[in-house]
């Protein structure tokens, strides 16, 4: 019963992580390699589709945080496709069929971030504590700079100790202006930042906010206020509201999405920390219950490890050899 569990923490398999991947797809595969080993799908899908392998497969999907409803749906889809192609007589392996089913489930989430014509284009980020908002902002700024867009950061986390400094240090390293205030109201910081961006002709404003748990209703109210003030500074803004989700999060990711969406109207998700063990399945749960575009996935600690999400490649990277 614990065989597959052992496989995933085996140091030898952990070392199978590559040295220096080049393309992002390889990088994504590298980041997800552990997931693949963990769920052991490769091994078990080589077999035929009997009840035992379906059971193991169910366990594998559940074990990757796909959640009960999405797992059930994926298994149904697999059975359906298996039957349609005539079982073992058909051309495709169960693995390929499952990959297709997974890709189809995830496809509604595939909508890369497109920076609109509006200047400045304001992107607001929110999420629970420790999800990786500030780190993601750094990576995001880098990503946008590579597309020859000028970026300005608004240090809206005025609560956590040294959050402002964290962003400032990052800004200095990468030559990005950071607008911040000593203490004070996050909404005021946003107002300043948007105005500064407009007067300096900046393309994109990345607005950081303090982490908060959705149960803290007054802090969710504060988020609404921040959004209102941004809209006051720049009509139509924020143009994008990104929810940053920790890839480690279990089924609570769904209630986070619900709560932040109710407060802000989430237009996209950034899924972080996908470079650890057994992750990414929560995406399927999101696709099943509340499909919101997954704009970026974080597959490593480096600044350029934040990548656009492509459903088919994600599914393939999760399931292929």
């Amino acid at each position: 019963m614990f065989d597959w569990l052992k496989a995933k923490t085996d140091p030898a398999s952990a070392q199978a992580a590559p040295e220096l991947p080049v393309s992002w797809r390889e990088r994504l595969k590298a980041g997800l390699a552990k997931t693949r080993q963990a769920v052991g799908l490769t091994r078990l899908l080589a077999k035929k589709l009997d009840q035992a392998s379906l059971d193991t497969l169910e366990g594998a999907l559940l074990g990757a945080d796909a959640g009960v409803p999405a797992t059930a749906q994926l298994l149904d889809a697999l059975r359906e496709r298996w039957k349609q192609q005539g079982g073992e007589a058909g051309p495709a392996t169960p693995r390929a069929l499952l990959r297709d089913a997974l890709a189809d489930l995830l496809r509604p989430l595939e909508a890369p971030l497109a920076i609109g014509a509006h200047r400045p284009y304001v992107i607001m980020l929110a999420g629970v504590n420790g999800a990786g908002k500030t780190t993601s902002i750094g990576k995001l700024a880098k990503y946008l700079q590579e597309q020859r867009l000028s970026v300005l950061l608004a240090a809206g986390d005025t609560f956590r100790a040294a959050a402002r400094e964290q962003l400032q240090v990052w800004g200095e390293r990468n030559n990005v202006t950071v607008i911040s205030q000593e203490g004070g109201d996050p909404a005021a910081v946003m107002f300043d930042a948007v105005q500064a961006a407009r007067s300096r002709g900046i393309d994109v404003v990345l607005a950081d906010t303090a982490g908060r748990l959705p149960t803290q209703l007054h802090l969710m109210e504060e988020l609404r206020k921040i959004k209102r003030v941004i809209a006051k500074a720049e009509p139509g803004a924020p143009h994008e509201v990104l929810l940053v989700l920790d890839g480690n999060t279990g089924q609570n990711a769904l209630s986070q999405l619900q709560a932040f969406d109710a407060a802000l109207g989430v237009t996209g998700i950034v899924l972080t920390k996908l470079d650890g063990t057994a992750k990414g399945g929560v995406v399927a749960a999101i696709a099943k219950s509340q499909p919101v575009p997954l704009r970026f996935i974080g597959v490593g600690e480096g600044v350029d490890d934040l990548r656009p999400f492509v459903a088919r490649e994600f599914a393939a990277a999760l399931l292929d050899e």
Partner: peptide, 18 residues
């Protein structure tokens, strides 16, 4: 450990415990 952590808690815990 984060109370919101999902299935991977078991791997992380094992790695740190080792």
């Amino acid at each position: 450990v984060d109370a919101m952590q999902g299935q991977d808690a078991v791997n992380t815990a094992k790695a740190f415990n080792d």
